[in-house]
Simulated scan of single mutants.
Amino acid sequence: MEPNQSGHRLYYVRLLAQAAVARGDEVVLALSEAASATDESGLHLSGIAESVTIVSARDFGVDAVAELSRRYDAAITVVPDGDRFAMRLARTRGGWSGQGALSVLIMREVAQPGRLSMVVAAKSRIRTALFHRASRLPRVRLSVLKSATWTGDSMFACAPDPVSLACGDDDISELRAAWNLEDDRYWFGVLGAIFDRKNVPLVARALRAAEAQNSGLLIAGRCDPEAARAMAGPLAELTAAGAKVVVVDRLLSELELDAAVTAVDCVVLAHSNEGPSGLFGKAAAAGTRVVAAGALSLREDARHVPSLASWVPLDETALMGAMRRAQALHRPTAVFAPENARFAEALL
Rank of each mutant, 00 (worst) to 15 (best):
A75L: 00
I48Q: 01
V110F: 13
P225S: 09
G7K: 11
L235F: 07
V267N: 10
G7D: 07
L347N: 08
G221H: 03
E50T: 06
M320Y: 01
V104F: 13
A286M: 06
C158G: 02
T92F: 00
N199R: 14
L235E: 08
A166V: 14
G24M: 04
L181S: 13
E254T: 12
L191R: 02
D73Y: 04
D249V: 10
Y186V: 13
L347F: 05
A292E: 02
R185P: 10
A37I: 09
V247Q: 14
D170H: 08
D258C: 15
E109K: 13
V62G: 02
A148Y: 03
R23H: 10
C158E: 15
L116M: 11
W311V: 11
G278S: 01
S103C: 04
E256Y: 07
V335M: 10
F280T: 01
D73C: 11
S56R: 15
S307N: 08
T128D: 02
W96R: 00
S297V: 06
G100N: 05
R9S: 07
K146N: 05
A74E: 00
Q5P: 15
V312Q: 05
T288L: 13
D224Q: 12
L202P: 09
A344H: 03
L202R: 14
A220W: 07
F156T: 06
W179H: 06
P3I: 06
D265V: 00
L31P: 12
E256F: 09
F60H: 09
R197G: 00
R88H: 11
L308E: 11
L217H: 02
L10I: 04
R229W: 05
L116S: 13
G275T: 03
M1D: 00
N199K: 07
S97G: 15
V264N: 04
E174V: 12
P3Y: 09
S135F: 05
Q213S: 12
G82Y: 01
S41Q: 09
P332V: 06
G281P: 06
D183T: 15
I48V: 15
S41E: 15
I219R: 02
G82I: 03
T317E: 13
P80S: 06
D265W: 00
A292M: 08
L308G: 05
R299E: 14
I219F: 06
V110C: 10
A148T: 03
P332Q: 03
S103D: 03
R250I: 09
P162T: 02
I126R: 07
L235C: 14
A57K: 11
A134I: 00
L102F: 01
A121C: 10
A66L: 03
A111M: 08
L15D: 15
K123P: 01
L142W: 05
Y186N: 12
L10P: 08
G24S: 11
P138H: 04
I54D: 07
G287D: 14
A309P: 00
G82E: 01
C266R: 01
G82Q: 01
V335Q: 15
G221P: 00
T149D: 02
V104S: 10
V312I: 09
C223Q: 12
D63H: 09
R58P: 00
V27N: 03
A86H: 06
E182C: 12
